[in-house]
Amino acid sequence: MKRHEAREKALQTLFQLEGTELTIEEAIDHVMAGERDNFYDLLVQGVHTNISSIDEKLKDHLENWSLERLPKIERTILRMAVFELSFMEDAPSRVVMNEAIELSKTFGDEKSSRFVNGVLSKFTDEQEN
């Protein structure tokens, strides 16, 4: 499985987990149907395990928005990207940003990609300085 596909499936899994009573294993089974991938597992488990610290990092980069007010799809995409940027040393920031923007174009509305780009640009600018 290519990383782009793993990110799509991780997004679908994490999206299912928010606001439902599914366990992480049930959500994984719904999306993956027995198929597994190391990068996918790393994303899903990593975001799920580190969600509190990811959310704290995100809150600092949202202008005029609260994390709770964000549409669920954008919140999930941003969480995945912040996880990759913060916890995965081999993740080039440009690749992570581009992937997040592409996911937001596919799964969000017409404004999603600009919003995701803006938040992640602030996040990466701060990390690089």
Rank of each mutant, 00 (worst) to 15 (best):
M1E: 11
K2V: 06
R3Q: 14
R3P: 09
A6L: 04
A6T: 02
L11K: 05
L11R: 03
Q12E: 08
L14H: 03
L14V: 03
L14W: 00
L17F: 00
E18K: 08
G19H: 02
T20R: 13
T20N: 10
E21Y: 03
E21H: 13
E21W: 04
L22D: 15
T23D: 11
T23Y: 01
E25T: 08
E26L: 15
A27P: 03
I28K: 11
D29Y: 05
D29M: 07
H30K: 15
H30F: 08
G34A: 07
R36P: 06
R36L: 11
D37S: 09
N38T: 08
D41M: 12
D41R: 13
L42C: 12
L43Q: 04
V44A: 14
V44H: 01
V47N: 04
V47A: 05
S52N: 13
S52F: 07
S53F: 05
I54P: 00
I54C: 04
D55W: 01
D55I: 05
L58Q: 09
K59L: 07
L62Q: 10
E63Y: 06
N64Y: 03
N64V: 13
S66W: 01
S66P: 06
S66N: 12
S66V: 05
L67E: 05
E68K: 12
E68H: 09
E68L: 08
R69I: 08
R69W: 02
L70P: 04
P71R: 15
P71L: 15
K72Y: 00
K72I: 06
I73W: 01
R75H: 01
R75D: 05
T76M: 07
T76I: 13
R79Y: 00
A81C: 04
A81D: 01
V82Y: 00
F83G: 05
S86E: 06
F87L: 14
E89A: 11
D90T: 15
A91E: 09
A91M: 06
P92K: 14
P92S: 13
V95F: 04
V96R: 02
N98D: 08
E99V: 06
E99Q: 10
A100V: 01
A100Y: 00
E102C: 10
L103G: 08
L103V: 03
K105D: 11
T106R: 09
T106M: 15
T106K: 11
T106S: 13
F107A: 09
F107M: 15
G108F: 00
G108W: 00
D109F: 02
K111G: 08
S113I: 05
F115T: 03
N117L: 13
N117E: 14
N117S: 12
G118F: 01
L120S: 06
S121Q: 12
K122R: 13
K122G: 10
F123V: 00
D125M: 10
E126Y: 03
E126H: 07
E128D: 15
E128A: 13
